[in-house]
Nucleic acid binder design. Structure first.
Length: 646
RNA sequence: GCCGGGUUAGCUCAGUUGGCAGAGCACUUCUCUUGUAAAGAAGAUGUCGUCGGUUCGAUUCCGACACCCGGCUCCA
């Protein structure tokens, strides 16, 4: 028997008997590794542990510690899900079941168009546990296209995949691979898989949902089951815990609990009314935005909510986006539409007088409320809404001035977002899709490189999104990470060569020539409503002192302290702080609990000591109670906190 | 728009195999007067999402619609 030599990732070599598998190698390295091994990576290719190694191969043993291992684990769990569903529902057929972030899903068609519901998940989960307890081996097989079509003769979706693979040039030569486990289950699969179902212990089925076959709404709708799967019990538990924590931050729940806003059904879907507390926060957000725009050289404008159809013909919205617009209102002299965007009206403002190069860049800003007809099933709290307000600006600049304007904009955007407690940003640069765009190549190239240079000049790393631009110009999108690491796309800076053309916008340059300005659409918060929702989730409802609807709650210990407490209240209100008074009709502990549930940052408790000393007891959110703090000291402290937006 | 689930008091939810509904919290009043996360008592509160149908009778069964939730699709 001859030996072979394989190379490990750390550079070391290992001698094995000829015919040794990846599994044998893992065992040779150590029993622990052999037990943890899920798949191998041989010369960069992911393979089953049962694969026989060849001399000189570079081999990496993949465990669930790595992303690849976890992905395999999830993929294999998806197979077990399919196996369970096919066993429980005779005649059911299955489509695709890939690993996804945190888990996996699998799509099924249940006979006679039957559907699955959440209650059935428990039964399916039980069946999966049986399959896992049986520790069935995943056995790979290979077949020709013809053979594969015979194996999956009862499963039309699988056949469609096989035929698609056969017809695509890349995969034409490839054999069709499949995996068997247990007595009857076989699934079309590229692999690799974990060696046996016993490796798949820590999973949970999450929910069922409809999903179109191949993601196309023209195709039949399948039943999709989502699940999560992890390397160990702790990881699974932690994941479920994180989901619970995220649910606690849900802006729809907090908006209700904190009395910020509501979505009365009589109003219609996707439309909100803002209660006083939510409005207070929103007003502060808007005030801050206005303040920054004012000092940033923007001109404030106002435009109506309605416009004649003619405007949206000129802008092209009726040609391109009419499906997303509310239907027209018939009026005496024609049709009127609710505006889905502010830009056409801002173009009218630009066009209202002859512009000189000296007027550029002209920055028009509006908190403009727009209405978009979002499909009923897509509405989602404040995140997807039908009537919303954009912190919208349109900047008209010369082509030469573009780079500088973009550079300034990037700085502006980041600086404003930082005030709302966001620290991590990521940038995406979307480029032209030649199939779906207007304008000549040179301008696109120039504009795209202006965006790229601006990002580079600020040392901002960015991702290129090829072909992701709007039809009218390239753009930079800015994502922020929130307090629990979720990413939200907020800001956008989009160049537009189309609207200046459609509205025939001009300026006179220094040599007296008429030129076309470039238009930049940009929004920082994007939709104020959505941004508010993101903030609620980011802060978990505990707004910082400058933004919170109520900054201070004043609680007398007993009735006898009420007069002094009112005095404290009056002084705080005199300083412009937003306060609420809680008279001593309930035990102190109860009142403290009430205000804490409302996430009010400062609770001032005043009793006998304070009356004699002119002090307050300060119970600040997230810190220890302080007694005997001079009122003036507290005022100063809150003033600083508010002014610096801590 | 599509698939599945849902809608009962201000909030969170229980309930009725068809006979006009209930808890906790909140609210009102009274008592207690409190030093840091739930004092006690009493009281009031509902077109059981809307409209139609079946029925002697519908909150309950059926249908349509509205709105919400989880996804799919879409997102200028």
């Amino acid at each position: 028997m001859t030996d072979i030599t394989v190379l490990l990732p750390d550079g070391s070599e290992r001698k094995l008997h000829e015919g040794a598998t990846v599994s044998d190698l893992a065992l040779d390295v150590g029993e622990g590794l052999a037990k943890a091994a899920l798949i191998g990576e041989v010369n960069g290719e992911e393979v089953d542990l049962s694969v026989v190694l060849s001399d000189g191969a570079t081999v990496n043993i993949v465990t669930s510690d790595s992303d690849k291992g976890l992905e395999t684990l999830r993929h294999s769990t998806a197979h077990v899900l399919a196996q369970a569903v096919l066993e429980i529902y005779p005649g059911a057929t299955f489509a695709i079941g890939p690993p996804i972030e945190h888990g996996f899903y699998y799509d099924f068609a249940i006979p006679d168009g039957a559907t699955l519901s959440d209650e059935t998940l428990e039964d399916i989960e039980e069946k999966m546990k049986e399959i896992i307890a049986a520790d069935q081996a995943f056995i790979r097989g290979e077949a020709s296209v013809q053979e594969a079509l015979e194996i999956f003769v009862d499963h039309p979706y699988k056949c469609e995949i096989i035929q698609a693979a056969d017809s695509s040039e890349i995969d034409a030569a490839e054999v069709i691979s499949f995996y068997r486990n247990g007595t009857g289950f076989v699934d079309l699969c590229r692999g690799p898989h974990v060696p046996s179902t016993g490796k798949l212990q820590h999973f949970k089925l999450m929910n069922v949902a409809g999903a179109y076959w191949r993601g196309d709404e023209k195709n039949p709708m399948l039943q999709r089951i989502y699940g999560t799967a992890w390397a160990n019990k702790k990881q699974l538990k932690d994941h479920l815990f994180r989901l619970e924590e995220a649910a606690k931050r849900d802006h729809r729940k907090l908006a209700n609990e904190l009395d910020l806003l509501s979505f009365p059904s009589e109003l219609g879907g996707g439309l909100a009314v803002w209660h006083p507390k939510g409005s207070q926060v929103r007003k502060l957000m808007e005030d801050y935005s206005r303040e920054r725009h004012e000092s940033g050289g923007y001109k404030f404008v106002y435009t109506p909510h309605l416009a004649n159809a003619e405007l949206f013909h000129t802008s092209g919205h009726l040609d391109f986006y009419s499906e997303g617009m509310y239907p027209p209102m018939e009026m005496d002299n024609g049709e009127y539409y609710l505006k889905p965007m502010n830009c056409p009206m801002h173009c009218l403002i630009y066009r209202a007088g002859t512009k000189s190069y000296r007027d550029l860049p002209l920055r028009l800003f509006e908190l403009g409320t727009v209405y978009r007809y979002e499909r009923a099933g897509t509405l989602h709290g404040l995140m997807r809404i039908r009537g919303f307000t954009q912190d919208d600006a349109h900047i008209f600049t010369s082509e030469e001035g573009l780079a500088e304007e973009i550079a300034g904009l990037l700085e502006f955007v980041v600086s404003v977002l930082k005030a709302f407690g966001f620290e991590e940003f990521s940038f995406n640069l979307s480029t032209r899709d030649p199939e779906k765009s207007v304008g000549d190549d040179q301008i696109w190239e120039h504009a795209t490189s202006a965006l790229e240079e601006a990002l580079n000049a600020h040392g901002l790393p960015f991702q290129m999104k090829l072909g992701d631009a709007a039809f009218y110009g390239p753009k930079i999108d800015i994502d922020v990470s929130d307090a629990i690491g979720r990413s939200w796309q907020l800001s956008t800076i989009q160049l537009d060569f189309n609207l200046p053309e459609r509205f025939d916008l001009r300026y006179i340059d220094s040599s007296g020539e008429r030129k076309r300005p470039v238009m930049i659409h940009r929004a920082l918060m994007g939709s104020i409503e959505r941004f508010f929702g993101v903030l609620v989730e980011h802060y978990a409802g505990a707004f910082p002192a400058w933004l919170t609807p109520i900054q201070v709650a004043v609680l007398p210990v007993a009735n006898g302290h009420e007069e002094y407490a009112k005095d404290v209240l009056g002084k705080l209100e005199g300083e412009g702080f937003r306060c609420e008074f809680y008279r001593a009709d309930n035990p102190l502990g109860k009142r403290i609990r009430d205000v804490k549930t409302q996430k009010i940052p400062y609770v001032l408790v005043v009793g006998g000591d304070d009356v004699s000393n002119g002090s307050v007891g300060v119970n600040a959110r997230g810190s220890e109670v302080e007694r005997g703090v001079p009122l003036t000291a507290f005022i100063e402290r809150l003033r600083t906190e508010v002014d610096t937006r801590q």
